[in-house]
Design a protein around this nucleic acid. Structure first.
Length: 118
RNA sequence: UCGGAAGAUCGGAUGGCUGCGGGGCUUUUGUUGCGUGUGUUUUGGGACUAUUCCCGGAGCAGGCGGAUCAAGGCUUCGAGGAAAGUCCGGGCAUCAUGGAAACACGGCGCCGGGGAAAUCCCGGAUGGAGUAAUCCACUGGACAGGGCCACAGAAAAAAUGUAGCUGGGAAAACAACCCCCAGUCAUAAUGAAAAGGUGCGGUAAGAGCGCACCGCGCGACCGGUAACGGAAGCGGCAUGGUAACCCCCGCCGGAUGCAAGAUCAAAUAGGGGCCGCACAUGAUGCGUUUUCACAUCGUGGCCCGGGUCGAUCGCUUGACGAAUCUGGUAACAGAUUGCGCAGAUGAAUAGCCAUCCCCGACAGAACCCGGCUUACAGGUCUUCCGAAAAU
């Protein structure tokens, strides 16, 4: 879309529910303390990411918003650097995402990517 | 100074790096389509002896203009007092509806004022709490009618008469008990409540039977816009509670909610129109047969219509807020202004770091506005009350 940064233009966003379901059906999932990751190849020359934070984790909208913002910042920083082209990835928030130190979250995400063989 | 009451207001600060959503201005290149006019090719019609001229269609090339979209630059704005719960009142939209009324159903219920309206707000009345400031209250009607009032108690509503008290009768030597008749409810027992209370008189015993005080009912008149308050006098006392049970009276109320709804519009199904082509010596249609005529049946293109995916609008400037002044006890109203006001749609307003402090509560807009209710760390300000001290 129109992201001016020199790195994040590689990253699109998943927006439609069917796109999320397709990634989930691929069954490639790994969970760390701070977050869960689902991934699927998308047959494109760019990668895209989506975020899922359910009401099950926190009832209050404020806490869910904060989790979403931390994950989004994480995605722009880490995925644009380490995620190869041609993948759709979904980051799923957990209860610990809210308070976990940012550096640990970063390690969690990298570890998940490694275990998923990317 | 201590304790208390009411109201208003704020809701971490500063800086750095990296970012997000909306608007505006601007630059460049590209994309798409539009307008304009130029050159050129080709073609139809007309005028003319002819060169040629006039009118129209199609293709190609590049020019200019102002847009759309994308990217870059600059600039500006970017969550709350409750954004929450979705409980009321409206705006707006669609649907239904000839008008009006009545019935049904639901809601509301002291008086006056405010407000678009409300079950909201302000002021007052009444009752209650507090030394006070102040706070609390679903506050019409129980002689329109019905229902209910547990347990206990004789009796729970136009009272009754269990124990008891008194008189008379009967019986008897006399008295008492038992029995019969009459009067009565002071006394006793039950209960949340027993049909005025206390005292004196009175009586066979008693009773508002009489009187005084208190209470209650009616109430001339006075004050107040009103709710209501005060009250001379009159009445011997009469209409127990519950309407948050039905009900009666008065007032109010269509339904559904922005996923409302409107516009544009790939695609698909079925439908309609026009044009071209094809067949046909065919099939079907009007009782049968033959002949003739007519209509339909095929296929291609374009258009209309349809409305899915999608896109745009609705979508944020309005019964708005703020400041100042004026009127009003106040709610609020009026005037003025180099004043302020998000608009997303997998959904922006952030991530990380540093410093400081009192170490940060409840909590995230989703069509808009007015209320209500609920949650909330801590800070600031104003007014008032009580006590102590000082003057």
């Amino acid at each position: 879309m129109h992201t001016p940064s020199n790195q994040s233009h590689l990253l699109g966003r998943l927006k439609q529910r069917p796109e999320f379901l397709r990634v989930a059906q691929e069954q490639r999932r790994w969970t760390a303390t701070g977050l869960s990751v689902q991934i699927a190849p998308n047959a494109r020359d760019t990668s895209r990411f989506g975020l899922t934070i359910t009401k099950k984790i926190y009832k209050e909208a404020v806490k869910r918003n904060r989790i979403r913002r931390r994950l989004r910042a994480l995605a722009y920083e880490v995925l644009s650097e380490f995620l190869p082209q041609g993948y759709d990835i979904v980051l799923i928030g957990r209860a610990e995402t809210l308070e976990r130190p940012y550096d640990d979250l970063k390690k969690d995400l990298l570890w998940c990517l490694k275990r998923l063989g990317v």
